[in-house]
Design a protein around this nucleic acid. Structure first.
Lengths: 259, 259
DNA sequence: ACCTGAACACCGTTCAAGT
DNA sequence: ACCTGAACACCGTTCAAGT
């Protein structure tokens, strides 16, 4: 239409670049959701035509891959510097295993996991795009990145080489699966009722579970209450500990595998 | 164009129905891939107009959800009847823990997992659609189904009620994550070179890993050989055992928790 | 109640043309 | 080398009209 639109960006002075395009794509995904990333929206935001974008990027899939990769790389880089954030409400009734040094491989794995967890919280489109990229090129840029970060700690844990692949896979798969589920919850809570907070959403979801036929879904029925009360990060951490314990029990020679 | 196309289906005699539409959608996804499911392709296959489909189905998302749900439900139903298939090549060097009854909860969990594993192998689009459905409605039809199947066995395992949610979540997340990764591999092997078999694909992928900079990716570099030799199902099973062991060690009161 | 099919708005992508 | 923007093919969805 011919409406004189307030020009969002003043005429572009700096040159276009792949980096700037990817950056704009991430912003669009964050603010407008997965459906909001459009070449038309992108051209408007960058004040160009579609052809300019295609000069720097082969197609939309490549752009999405680049956006995913950028966000994951940033998350993994950040978590290497910061110490792992403690769970919001410290629970003194559950003492963690005491015999771990502050920067044990276990702690670093938790840090990596929470790094991804947080990134997914900031960018709810991440899990879906990860799945899509996986189906396009399974050993593309992102998988190796995550695998490498986790794998190093598996190694540091003392797992013998023959079990590296198994142990790292188990961890990566759990982390991505759990973080994805969580992102879905958050996104859904936002979408269904923008004003509503997480607690109310979990309440509603729990109620929905309780309304399932108890004959067909006895377990879900029984566990609905737990799912209402659960704290995301606590739950996420508990799952990581399950996998870590399994790895330790199955793959570590003695009680303490560090050389 | 006006080419007189050989009409695939003779004039439809039976009435349209939601079931028939979902069935056709699954077939299209299987044969033509995720991009192949189109309302136009669907109308041609069903010999109708788009309006007819919209009478039975609200929109494409709902159709995809229904297709996903149908396939998952079938997989979970099938695995409840059949005994778990043994790994193709039995490995007598690795004795499984002997003290498990033939239909132990552990075995049933493995059966469920392999049921989903096989379903994903037949329908490579499943993981992506599961992720998409998750992001649309996290507690939609599919998640409760899988959660229920796995959860019952967690219960049978003797896990105390307070840990049900954690234990079931860990299993479900691992299963979906690992099966998804695998589906991606298969799909990619098919796409990149239709005539090539899995071994050759893994070979190529492994080589790609070995070509990554060893300074940036020391772990990946070291583990590339393992990934070439790995057997999917064996690997998948090993991961499940890691999670099961972790659950047993962390959440089971004694050594054997069954009452 | 169930189906038809033309029409609409929108999308990814291309390409001849400019600088 | 880098960018412009009109044009193309295709898609999900709608809706007045039929039976």
């Amino acid at each position: 239409m011919a409406t004189a639109r307030t020009r969002r960006s003043p005429r572009r002075t700096d040159a276009l670049s792949r980096e700037r395009i990817v950056e704009a794509a991430v912003e669009l995904l964050d603010t407008a959701g997965e459906g909001g990333l459009t070449f038309r929206a992108l051209t408007e935001r960058l004040a160009t035509g579609p052809g300019a974008i295609y000069w720097h990027v082969a197609n939309k899939d490549e752009l999405l891959d680049a956006a995913t990769d950028a966000v994951v790389a940033a998350a993994l880089a950040a978590e290497c510097l910061e110490p792992p954030k403690p769970t919001k409400r410290a629970d003194p009734t559950k003492p963690t295993k005491p015999a771990e040094s502050p920067d044990s491989p276990q702690d670093k794995i938790r840090a990596i996991a929470f790094g991804l967890f947080d990134a997914i919280e900031d960018h709810p489109w991440l899990p879906t795009q990860l799945a899509l990229q996986l189906s396009r090129s399974p050993w593309g840029s992102v998988t190796p990145r995550i695998f490498e970060s986790v794998g190093r700690q598996v190694r540091a844990l003392g797992v013998p080489e023959g079990h590296w692949f198994t142990a790292a896979s188990a961890l990566v798969h759990y982390i991505l699966g759990a973080a994805g589920q969580n992102a879905a919850n958050n996104a859904s809570a936002r979408t269904l009722a923008p004003g509503v907070d997480r607690a109310q959403f979990l309440d509603a979801a729990s109620k929905a579970w309780q309304e399932l036929d108890p004959d067909d879904y006895p377990f879900i029925h029984a566990v609905a209450a737990q799912m209402r009360e659960h704290d995301d990060r606590e739950q996420f951490l508990a799952g990581i500990d399950v996998v870590l314990t399994g790895i330790t029990a199955l793959h570590l020679p003695g009680e303490r595998g560090r050389t």
